[in-house]
Design a protein around this nucleic acid. Structure first.
Length: 1005
RNA sequence: GCUCAAGUGGCGGAAUUGGUAGACGCGCUGGAUUCAAAAUCCAGUUUCUUCGGAAGUGUGGGUUCGAUUCCCACCUUGAGUACCA
């Protein structure tokens, strides 16, 4: 019987689906284990070979855990709200729900053909109303909560109201650190309802506020900080500007410290924890008040170096700082205004790009030093960011390089307050390496002591206190888009009201088109049925809006991360219509045991999910305040892009000695191979060299270009010698679809010409006697880079088991690695070899023969290694181990059922189809998926002799077979008696002989 | 600039607590089988070599009987982050 993988794989995929083999029960005597993948966004391009990498790894682990007797939850679903479907809708008018459903169908087919052990009965889709009902529910819970810093957890807003009613906000303000006017209980009770709502909004965990946001004009929406990369949007690379808008925000900053501390309790990768720590950006220091001389104002600054307070020689405010206009003196006003205007004009990106340029302006005002009472000039400068700390710094040039540069640039005096340190060239920032001097009561103290003392003294005079600052900003939660969760919110007198939970979900309305409205409102502004009737409790037509019972609904939708921040908990009880999940389900599954996904979500999804989980924990809905115990980042599989070089010829004609006319010869653009391109690469000798080197190859091309466009009678020397009329070239590279390129980098020119119309009649030039070779580069796999490799062809040609094995065999899971199909034949022939252990031309050849010692040794060696590998997520090495086992058992001509049966269980997590098929051929009626994992028996590996490596000065020179029970003395005797030892020593006496029994012998000579 | 990760044959990679560097696979070379091809099987494949051996894991030092593994300095590559006070 032949290994007919297509047939076998289809058969078992059907079996698993029909028998619901991988359906996880919420009630079980078995211990539970929850293996989770990051669910995919179903893009129109379908799955490429990079997507399944993490899924294969988690599937191997999930299957292994089933063999170990666990009740395994291994769900899958779709993060199906998002931009691409919406942009497609804008272009074509097709409803995003239709596009999304189609894409999901493709994804499902592709996932099924790889043979994952997902429990599809638990599938979730974030764009499904029955799912986003619960996203809306969480939003309402957040709205109805505030963060009590005293109990350090989220609490119901009703408790805050009762505090206000009985004692006003004096105590709460102190803890909450909000800039809210204090009020008494009497005042609170006398406030209008609207005023009360406005105040409460400033305490809620999700709140509506006028905030400066990242606005992306091209996408017509705001973006979160983690959606911006290098000053442009992550999706599409469009510019981003700062803009003030009223937006929903999430008070993640309240959880900054707990998000930081929680990292200590979870088994996530260090690099991921490090990025989250950087993102949270905790700094410990002090807040200090500087009174502004002859005014009622004071400047409040945050510093991590209160120990350097006597080194302050000026202060710097961000240009946007609210005090700037209030303290600037009349004679400095013009200069300050001009500076503010100039910085406002520059985009965030320009400012960041232009770090070296020092700019600023003097306000004319002076602050007073809290201790010396000396005047300190107040400047403004754009190196101080309005968004961090207080937007103002006390500038200590001797200890901070930026302050130092600013001081030097504007000739501000620099005081040295460090003992025995030279600051004539640059600032001295190494705080551990000196002690404080010239600083009154801080003299002689080290950094730590001085910091403590400075804070104490500031507190004594009421001008400062110890303070911790976080870089983490509250997360903007509104998006001006259609394809996202609608908010369960309507507005009465401009104040947001929550719709009762019992009326959820509020479903996305139909719209005429998916673009913003003419008045600049979000796409939901196009909906005609989008108002809330508070009497009927349903969505009604906008025409019915009146001031009594029908009110406008929120027009923004939620961001992409809303749907993914609790999906892992929903999987525990996905079809529950009465609650996000039942308490029983949560009590059983607890939390994710293993989460596998990409590191690109480090500061987005993974931080937001931890935030929501902590909130859910505070409210008592979940049992753990971290949702995933262990997390592994799989590396990305990269594509190997192919490029051809496109050459643009330009004609040039010298008119006078200083004037040359030139232009593109657009119809003569041509394409060249890698080897010709290399001739272009020396840019210093551009014109002459290129034409000279290319001339032999492009002779006819050049001559025709000349005669055509310069209308000149030229001979060859004119061209080569670069006379008054000449040709120059510019070159760029364009992606070629990798399907037109073979493994030797050769381009199929005919196929390529048919790819796009502009190549149809184009010229493709390469050196004589050479094939046309493309340029290769490793990049992220993406449709736009034409380097996508589709798993479908591989499944068809080699089978899913080969694909699974090969993706694991490529290298360590966490590593980034380029895809290269070349090696897949290796794992495929292993599977064929494995099959041949069970079948030959005459059929099944497995017997009841008693296994030999060698058979047992091979099997148990394999059990040990594979088990260790799976537990260490070292899947690449267990594929090698399987190959070794198959090679050895083939050589041993093993047919013993006692060996071949357990071998199948070992292989089953990696190559489940072939394992199931052979298992059933061995007369089993049940799936192999829950058969116990074989027990490792050490006794089969015990040896009586050891082939000792004999080294001289640490270099292995030969080996000697010796009994393992030999004493050290006898080993030495045997080794010294050996001929080869004498040869190595050449008569010298060994200085020392090191013997590690069972390991090595080392002779030092 | 800062932080993190990684540098091993022609290639992907292995060596888990310091103990035979290059497992396993790809590719390549030779052979068997075949009319031929595919497939399969066998042998070889780090480099140099006077065929005895010798050198060798980015570079230079160090610790050790012994270092791919530990320590120091440097170089290169990749990723993240960036005026964070």
């Amino acid at each position: 019987m032949k290994y007919n993988f297509n047939e076998i794989e289809a058969k078992w995929q059907k079996y698993w689906a029909e028998n619901q083999t991988f359906k996880a029960d919420n009630i079980s005597d078995k211990p539970k284990y929850y293996v989770l993948d990051m669910f995919p966004y179903p893009s129109g391009a379908g799955l490429h070979v990079g997507h399944p990498l993490g899924y294969i790894a988690s599937d191997i682990y999930a299957r292994y855990k089933r063999h170990q007797g666990y009740n395994v939850l291994h769900p899958q679903g779709y993060d199906s709200f998002g931009l691409p479907a919406e942009q497609y809708a804008i272009q074509t008018g097709q409803h995003p729900a239709i596009t999304t459903a189609e894409n999901i169908k493709t994804y499902r087919r592709q996932l099924d053909q790889i043979g994952f052990s997902f429990d599809w009965s638990r599938e979730v889709r974030t764009s499904d109303p029955s799912y986003y009902k619960w996203t809306q529910w969480i939003f309402i819970q957040l709205f109805n909560s505030w963060y009590n810093n005293e109990s350090d957890k989220a609490e119901d807003i009703s408790e805050l109201i009762s505090i206000f009613e009985t004692e006003g906000n004096a105590t709460v303000n102190a803890i909450c650190d909000e800039n809210i006017e204090p009020f008494s209980a009497e005042e609170w009770n006398s406030f209008s309802s609207k005023k009360q709502q406005q105040i409460l909004l400033q305490y809620r965990l999700t709140y509506l506020a006028e905030t400066e946001v990242n606005w992306c004009p091209a996408l017509g929406t705001v973006l979160a900080n983690d959606e911006i990369v290098n000053g442009v949007s992550e999706r599409g690379g469009h510019p981003v500007i700062r803009k003030k808008m009223t937006q929903w925000s999430m008070r993640i900053s309240a959880y900054a410290e707990r998000l930081l501390q929680g990292l200590e309790t979870i088994d996530w990768t260090d690099s991921l924890k490090e990025s989250q720590r950087n993102w949270i950006g905790k700094s410990v220091g002090a807040q200090v008040e500087f009174r502004v001389q002859s005014s009622k104002f004071s400047v409040s600054v945050f510093t991590t170096r209160p120990d350097t307070i006597f080194g302050v020689s000026f202060m710097t405010l961000a240009p946007e700082h609210e005090l700037v206009s209030k303290i600037t003196t009349p004679d400095q006003k013009a200069e300050v205004d001009a500076y503010i205007e100039a910085t406002a004009k520059r985009s965030e990106r320009d400012r960041v790009a232009d770090v070296k340029n020092i700019t600023g302006a003097f306000t004319g005002a002076y602050a007073e030093h809290p201790f010396t009472k000396k005047p300190i000039p107040i400047w403004i400068g754009d190196y101080v960011l309005a968004g961090y700390g207080t937007g103002a710094v006390m500038s200590v040039p001797c200890g901070d390089q930026r302050d130092y540069d600013f001081a030097k640039h504007f000739n501000i005096p620099i005081h040295n307050i460090f003992d025995g340190v030279d600051i004539s060239e640059k600032a001295f920032a190494d705080k551990e390496k000196t002690v404080i001097a010239n600083s009154d009561f801080l003299n002689g103290m080290n950094y730590k002591k001085a910091t403590k003392r400075a804070i104490y003294e500031l507190e004594q005079i009421g001008q400062g206190e110890g303070k911790t600052n976080y870089r983490l900003r509250d997360a903007v939660f509104s998006r001006q888009r259609y394809w996202g969760e609608p908010f369960p919110v309507y507005y009465v007198n401009g104040m947001p009201q929550m719709i009762d939970v019992e009326h959820l979900p509020i479903e996305l309305p139909e719209v005429r088109n998916y673009l913003p409205t003419e008045t600049g409102e979000p796409p939901l502004g196009n909906a005609t049925v989008w108002a809330w009737d508070t009497e009927k409790n349903e969505v009604v037509s906008n025409d019915l809006i009146d001031d009594k019972t029908v009110f406008p609904l929120e027009l923004n939708t939620m961001p992409g991360w809303a749907g993914s921040s609790q999906y892992f908990n929903r999987y525990m009880d996905p079809n529950n219509e009465d609650a996000i999940f039942s308490k029983d389900a949560m009590d059983y599954w607890q939390q994710v045991d293993l989460y596998i996904g990409g590191s690109e979500h480090a500061t987005g999804h993974l931080l937001y999910s931890r935030f929501w989980q902590k909130f859910m924990f505070d409210k008592g809905y979940v049992n753990h305040d971290e949702f995933a115990k262990k997390l592994i980042n799989q590396g990305m599989i990269l594509g190997t892009s192919a490029f051809v070089y496109r050459v643009f010829p330009h004609w040039n004609k010298k008119i006078t000695s200083s004037k040359t006319e030139s232009g593109l010869i657009s119809e003569s653009v041509f394409y060249v191979s890698q080897s010709i391109f290399e001739l272009f690469s020396d840019r210093r000798e551009y014109y002459k060299k290129i034409v000279k080197d290319l001339y032999p190859i492009l002779k006819s091309k050049l001559l025709s270009l000349y005669s055509k466009h310069l209308n000149n009678q030229l001979d060859e020397s004119d061209i080569i010698n670069h006379s008054d009329s000449y040709i120059t070239f510019t070159v760029d590279k364009i992606h070629a679809d990798v399907s037109y390129v073979n493994s030797s980098d050769e381009l199929d020119i005919e196929g390529f010409k048919n790819w796009r119309p502009e190549f149809k009649n184009a010229e493709f030039l390469t050196k004589e006697n050479e094939t046309f070779k493309v340029h290769r580069e490793v990049e992220k796999m993406s449709k736009s880079k034409y380097n996508v490799v589709n798993p479908d062809n591989i499944c068809e040609q080699y089978g899913a088991d080969s694909l699974r094995l090969y993706e694991m065999f490529l290298g360590p899971l966490e590593q980034y690695k380029p895809w290269n199909t070349a090696g897949i034949t290796g794992v495929h022939s292993f599977l064929k070899k494995l099959w041949k252990l069970y079948f030959d031309d005459n059929g099944l050849k497995v017997t009841d023969a008693t296994p030999t010692k060698d058979n047992l040794k091979t099997l148990h060696k394999t059990i040990k290694k594979v088990q260790e590998d799976i537990e260490n997520f070292s899947f690449n090495t267990s594929v090698s181990t399987f190959m070794i086992a198959a090679n050895e058992l083939t050589a041993q001509k093993c047919t013993s059922k006692e060996i071949l049966k357990p071998l199948l269980v070992l292989v089953s997590p990696y190559a489940p189809h072939i394992a199931e098929e052979l298992w059933s051929q061995l007369e089993h009626n049940e799936s192999i998926s829950t058969v116990p994992f074989p027990e490792f028996d050490e006794s089969h590996l015990v040896e009586s002799t050891k082939n000792y490596p004999i080294s001289f000065n640490g270099k292995m020179r030969f080996t000697m077979e010796l009994p393992l029970d030999l004493s050290k003395k006898d080993i030495e005797k045997a080794v010294m008696a050996n001929e080869k030892t004498k040869e190595q020593l050449q008569g010298r006496e060994p200085k020392k002989v090191i013997i590690v029994p069972g390991k090595i012998v080392n002779i030092v000579g």
